[in-house]
Design a protein around this nucleic acid. Structure first.
Lengths: 100, 100
DNA sequence: TTTACATATCTAAAAATATAGATATGTTAT
DNA sequence: ATAACATATCTATATTTTTAGATATGTAAA
């Protein structure tokens, strides 16, 4: 868990929003067609729609979030779903509390 | 309190270190010559020495930290002392806890 | 009232980040 | 096999950040 790396990710409004939206997928995204749950998170397309940014930008963002271990990707067919990595997020919050 | 702005400041190792060092000035810095306390924090020169970076870089860092309200400067004669803004830091930590 | 000193600001160059279009990859449907 | 589609990667440009040297400002000491 690299605090500096995580803070870099979290120094962009869109990336923070993505992380927040993923707390409540059913509130922030339409239901998926092929599956009826958000157990593995939300597909890239929905996240892109919500932000209004380009597909490649969102992919880059999600990749940076994944590198910082803030999200976990899961492939289902042609879709990639992203969900929060709650363990790392929890550890990050605790580190901020204790060290800052 | 702007979380994005604060996260930008905290996405650099040196700036995070400065904030941490200022938690315990007496442990991390030599005593000041003119005063015998750290009530207003630590003078810029000591912070510069500790980091090994240039004077202008440290001044820029401290300025960005001040713009994000993470530190409070106080002038004493020719020295400027910087201390942590505990209220804002506390609010930031709580915001991270509650919103992230 | 000059000189020395601490810090801030200005200027500039290098590096990193943001963002998108084009292209590639992998999966599903036909 | 081919077409359609979701996502990833590559390439490129604009913007921002990093960092330091030079210079300016403000204070204190001689």
């Amino acid at each position: 868990m690299d605090i500096i790396e995580i803070n870099k990710v979290l120094s962009n409004k869109t990336r923070v929003n993505i992380l927040k939206w993923l707390k409540n997928p059913e509130l922030n995204f339409p239901p998926h067609q092929d599956i009826d749950h958000f157990n593995d998170g939300v597909c890239v397309g929905y996240i892109q729609d919500k932000t209004g940014l380009s597909q490649s930008t969102i992919s880059t963002y999600l990749n940076s979030m994944q590198n910082a271990d803030l999200v976990i990707p899961t492939r289902h067919g042609k879709w990639t779903y992203y969900k929060r990595n709650e363990d790392v997020i929890k550890a990050y919050i605790e580190a901020i509390q204790n060290e800052l």
